[in-house]
Amino acid sequence: MYRHLALLCGINVSGHNMIKMDALKTLLENAGFHNVQTYIQSGNVFVDSEDENPSAVGFKIKQEIFKTFGHEVPVVVIGKADLEACFKNNHYLNESNADSKKLYVAFISRELSDGALNDLKISQFKPDEARIDKSRIYIKYAEGAGKTRLDQKYIEKKLNVTATIRNWNTVTNLLSLFEERNV
């Protein structure tokens, strides 16, 4: 069995794409996933699967959600190593005045090129900052996520990817849950 974390994009936001987590859990169990566990209402779902391929797992989850709920929900699937890399490679954590409430991670559906940061035109969002690390973008919002245009939709449009953003507290809790699952 392979352990995966599916990050669903855009569910239960402002009354759109509403999916109750217990219904999602049941759906995924019935679809053949094992050890299904959800975390908060924003669409974080741990699953065990015989399929090692994260893209295939994400596609299956996306199909099942559409068949059952009628919602077209993009899904980014990551592993424990992806979350561990967030802590290792997020240089904003090393700043002396790091405010974890302003730190976010955008998880991207594919690995980004070195030029992707230029494609985002980050300078137009100052004082917000961002750095790219493979299939993650570390973001430091100056005023918070609600007061910026550097959001999921902008990232997806500029880079032609599927993206989903999680705050640092959620990333921390997801890693803890992943570690608990490995016991």
Rank of each mutant, 00 (worst) to 15 (best):
F33C: 05
N94Y: 09
A6N: 08
A23S: 14
K102T: 07
L117N: 10
K147T: 00
A163T: 13
E84L: 13
E72H: 10
E50R: 11
R3N: 05
K140W: 01
C86K: 04
K147F: 14
T26K: 15
D99T: 03
V36Y: 02
N169Y: 13
A106F: 04
K20E: 15
K60H: 12
S123W: 00
F66C: 06
S176M: 11
L150D: 03
A85Y: 03
A116F: 07
L120V: 11
F178N: 04
S113D: 15
L27D: 07
G10H: 06
R136S: 07
R131F: 03
M1Y: 01
E72M: 07
R131C: 00
V183L: 11
A56Q: 11
S49W: 02
E72Q: 07
I139A: 01
F178D: 08
N182T: 11
L174S: 12
Y2V: 00
Y138K: 06
D48E: 15
V47Y: 08
Y104D: 05
L7F: 02
N35A: 05
E84G: 11
S55V: 10
R136W: 00
R136I: 02
Q37F: 09
S176D: 11
N89P: 01
E84C: 02
K25C: 12
L83V: 11
N182Q: 09
R181Q: 09
H16N: 15
R110Y: 03
I122N: 02
Q41E: 04
R136H: 04
I132V: 11
M1A: 08
V183P: 00
S123P: 03
K157I: 02
N182F: 03
Y2L: 00
G79E: 15
G115H: 14
N118L: 15
F46E: 13
S42T: 07
E111L: 03
L159M: 08
P54D: 06
N169S: 15
Y154K: 12
N12M: 10
I132E: 01
F46M: 13
F59E: 14
H16D: 09
Y39N: 04
R181C: 01
D99G: 04
Q37D: 05
H34L: 09
N12F: 06
A116Q: 04
H91S: 12
N89V: 01
N44W: 11
S42C: 02
K121M: 12
T172W: 01
T162V: 15
D151S: 12
N160Q: 15
V13D: 07
H34C: 06
K60D: 02
L83K: 08
D151T: 08
N90Q: 09
A106Q: 06
K60A: 13
G10C: 06
